[in-house]
Design a protein around this nucleic acid. Structure first.
Lengths: 228, 228
DNA sequence: CACAAAATGTTGACATGGGCAACATTGCAA
DNA sequence: TTGCAATGTTGCCCATGTCAACATTTTGTG
């Protein structure tokens, strides 16, 4: 006899899926507080579990945050994949992807910062494996959209074009990344014509890329404005 | 008689400029550990002072970090100003500024992240005043270089052009910002042709801007490669 | 089915760190 | 001179990360 519960034995000794519960709680707190400075103990409390239980699932706070970051990458990748699902033209796909990326970041700044903010990089070791693979998967979406767009139009596969493609990917990604973070950090906006500005930034980037990879034709911006 | 120093009374009761000493120590630790997770107590130790002394100068760890961030903005602004000092053409100035910005960020990732990473934004209140003004000063450099470049070539000062200018500034800044952070977080590079890639990113951005603001003529990349 | 081992949770303890409060020392100003 | 403000110091409290030891289940295996 361990427990002296007067009524029903509400919680069984084992939680069931504490791993998930902790990650979910972390996502919650992250959204609420917009800060990664919550405590593992707080998460344990929310999960209705003792302060050390999480350590049976994460060796470290770092590892927990990495798991959260991994979920973030999955969510973002899913968002981007959804956005580009039924679009044919490379330009449309890239545009939709960019919009999904930026709006995803803006909707949960703390999560985005956790994913890209170097909390996982700055320390001693490399990024934990789980998170790294999720990040790579997301990156692959960008790379595919870009090179798929190019290859779809039969660009000769020589070294010169490969170099250009690398450059274009870097332009695309860093532009999205930078724009997202400027918005997230409120360094531009957030008022007035932010949405139009964002759209025009992405558009002019695509126009710029069109010079680099002739496959992406210039064109008007398509699709709905950025979500808020 | 308070101290019973056997030899010389090394430290006077008052430090002299503890504020500065603490900020300097913070910059040191930040560079070394590449993390903002140092303790105020550690800084106090380094400054050879009791663990609570810093609180006479900073109400908060947040405030200390804000001060550090402010110094970071000043350093970066100085760097950018230096880099553009003797350059005439708008394109050259923007190019130099971009290079200074990116290389500054890459040289001290943790500081750059502190400045732009939203540690100061995420919380309850706005960014502390000291830091905010420093950030604005730096932003003004970008804005000036861009609009000065435009005005220098007598662009009609109508609403349409103003809108374009805003867009161009956002493109420029977010591109620099994104590229810097991708490099900083080791999400691209850091090996191989990173420097060339970076240069080509910035170059193609300027080319793109040339379409938007006809004042920035296309041209070859000028100046030395990015410092490492 | 019994039972040992592996999982999973719990309690307790320790060191570290942020931050408050009370006190000490010093410089400065009236 | 004397009293106040600035600056440092000591001591304390509490929250947190993390380790260790112990408790309770689940599960695989004879």
């Amino acid at each position: 006899m361990s427990r002296t519960n007067s009524t029903a034995d509400q919680r069984p000794y084992h939680h069931g899926d504490l791993h998930r519960a902790i990650v979910d709680a972390a996502l919650e707190v992250l959204s609420e507080s917009q800060s990664t400075e919550f405590s593992l103990r707080e998460l344990a409390r929310r999960a209705g579990v003792s302060h050390n239980a999480p350590y049976k699932h994460f060796s470290d706070k770092r590892e927990l945050l990495a798991a959260v970051s991994g979920v973030g990458f999955e969510l973002l990748a899913e968002r981007m994949a959804d956005a580009t699902k039924e679009l044919g033209s490379p330009r449309e796909r890239l545009a939709a992807m960019a919009r999904a990326y930026v709006s995803g970041g803006v909707q949960n700044p703390a999560l985005y910062r956790l994913m890209f903010g170097g909390y996982l990089t700055g320390q001693d070791s490399d990024r934990p494996a789980i998170e790294r693979t999720a990040a790579y998967r997301m990156k692959a979406l960008v790379v595919d959209a870009m090179s798929g767009g190019a290859l779809g139009h039969e660009i000769p596969n020589n070294a010169e074009n490969e170099r250009k493609l690398d450059g274009a990917i870097l332009v695309f990604w860093s532009q999205m990344h930078g724009l997202t973070l400027l918005l997230v950090d409120r360094l531009v906006g957030p008022g007035e014509a932010m949405r139009e500005l964002s759209d025009s930034v992405l558009q002019s980037m695509l126009d710029g890329l069109a010079n680099c990879i002739p496959v992406i034709p210039p064109g008007v911006w398509v699709g709905p404005p950025l979500a808020d």
